[in-house]
Write a protein that binds this DNA or RNA. Structure first.
Lengths: 333, 333
DNA sequence: CTGAAAGCGCTAACAT
DNA sequence: ATGTTAGCGCTTTCAG
């Protein structure tokens, strides 16, 4: 019974029909005369009947819930991603069960266990690197899943996202083309994110285009970026540009510059990654890379539902991300 | 059956015990000899048995999932709130099902329907104002629920949060005490949030302490705050302080001032609401009101679980919120 | 301490 | 087009 105690049987009794017929109409059923359909719908409304999801799930082996595990929700990009997933899933009649892993493989595994234990029909994971136990579990239980926020053509697993290494490479190229020869890359904790590692690796691969290409690891927040850049501002290598692997870090860079009396982009250039809402509104507007957080969420949700409903194979997909040129990078040529 | 097809019956067969006994040990059961308990646990591990949540829910009428509907996840305060709920719920063996209402009563109602239709055991709502249909539904279905982000001693319903009106009043008092006589209150869309309305009402109630107390409504983002304050900067009333109902708006105010060449706090003072992470790191550090987003999430989750597990009545609770004095407000005395 | 058995509410063959 | 019926996997009396 549902909370107010009305079950499909009550509706059947009320209408003088069988439970099977009720079930048919409630499920957008086929093969029901328009007349009975109306009768049933009316009775459902009158009795305020709500199908019991557990019973339905038990019978169909489908919960219509998909689970997502993200490293954090307190970062705009993930918040947008999750919001998009929720919205698209909802439009398809699915719900989202969410868990936060704090970028920790062990927590991620525990979360996956819990979510699957809640009956999730599929799993959305962030990034490419996951504990073997998790991967084993997914295989053994044959759970549909997709990796996100990254794209790897060579992966045998479905990855929907962008090529972090390539993007970092492009960002650096953007700087190089504008005459920057000494640049500092400021990024978050490498241990916590394969996407950060990929960006760093991508940046490193084009190191030969620069006189100096330095890497700094900072806590992934405004304070982290600020402290890191403030220190780097005194570096004898005299960087002309700071590539921040996240807009939040870039905001920290802005405040570090303000404090040190350095003008952007006159004295130093700053470039971000994410294209957060405010990046266009700060002074000067930030040149950054637009990551398709919302589009990615929509696509992931769509693909998972397509798989669940129609068996459409889950496969990798690269999403477009492009540089948004604004005023924070000087042209030194 | 769960995904890999092992059910409680398989474990029973494997151990030569009955399903009842398996159920007992799996559920931290009582009345099982230590020996059988071990046998069972072993068999469970060996077979990789995971209880089917739907079957369990059908039998117990409990899903161990609680639902939360928030207006947006793309605002730090809500992100923190949700993160805390998820964490605390998880620690108690519960899961979070989330939906986003976009601050729309109709969407909220639809979301509630969906989440309850997914079998949520309880509902967490944001704010005090909700559609009558929603309220009716909660009553009729006897769904446990709590309103959050606000606290209202007079409400008959459980509200866990803070007194938004009082907080705005205090913020204004803070400004008044420092000699500000002409202040502008910049807030988000009134139509979307009863908390915004409460803050405005609270501010209005102490209008007589000021020579000018003006109210401006802006879109709730950096761009909104920036545009609004930029215009207000030219107001003939020459406000000496801007009280922003959100730190995000305050950040916009900072950029508006930067653009207009106004120095904070020398030329104008700015005060926020939220105490977001970066408010301490911006230049100058922002005076704001610390809202207990995380503590609120923890408490809400705890209380709901306490109700679900032990029947502890849900009741209202006021959480402490205090002014964080930093450098963005000048003392004019 | 353990087992048998009756559901929980719904869906999906299979009949009619 | 509609009805009958057998489960789905688990919990929970009630016996023993």
């Amino acid at each position: 019974m549902n909370r107010i105690g009305v079950s499909i049987r009550d509706v059947a009794r009320e209408t003088g029909l069988s439970t099977a017929t009720i079930s048919r109409v409630v499920n957008g059923g086929s093969k029901v005369s328009e007349k009975t359909r109306q009768t049933v719908l009316e009775a459902c409304a009158r009795l305020d009947y709500l199908p019991n999801p557990a019973a339905r799930a038990l019978s169909t082996r489908r919960s219509k819930a998909v689970a997502a595990i993200i490293p954090t929700i307190e970062h705009s990009v993930f918040a947008k991603f999750i919001a998009a997933i929720e919205r698209t899933l909802g439009a398809r009649g699915y719900s989202l069960i969410m868990a936060i892993s704090n970028a920790d493989e062990v927590e991620e595994l525990a979360a996956a266990r819990k979510l699957l234990g809640m009956g999730a029909d599929a799993l959305i994971l962030s990034g490419l690197d996951h504990s073997d136990l998790l991967l084993d579990m997914l295989e053994r239980r044959a759970v549909p899943y997709v990796f996100t926020s990254a794209w790897d053509a060579r992966s045998a697993r479905p990855t929907i996202g962008y090529d972090n290494a390539l993007l970092a490479e492009r960002a650096l190229a953007h700087l190089a083309e504008r005459g920057h020869r000494r640049v500092a890359v400021v990024h978050g904790p490498l241990a916590e994110s394969d996407r950060t590692r990929a960006r760093r690796a991508g940046a490193m691969s084009v190191g030969d285009r620069f006189e100096h290409l330095a890497f700094f690891e900072a806590p992934l927040d405004v304070a982290g970026g600020k402290a890191c850049v403030r220190a780097a501002l005194d570096d004898p290598r005299e960087f002309t540009a700071y590539l921040c692997s996240t807009d939040v870090l870039a905001l920290g860079a802005y405040f570090a510059c303000a404090q040190a009396g350095k003008r952007i982009p006159l004295d130093v250039s700053v470039m971000g990654f994410d294209n957060l809402d405010w990046s266009r509104d700060i002074e000067p507007p930030l040149t950054t890379i637009d990551l398709p957080a919302t589009g990615m969420g929509d696509m992931v949700a769509e693909r998972i539902v397509a798989y669940l409903e129609d068996g459409v194979d889950l496969r990798s997909e690269e999403l477009p991300a492009r540089i948004i040129e604004r005023a924070s990078v000087a042209d030194l040529r």
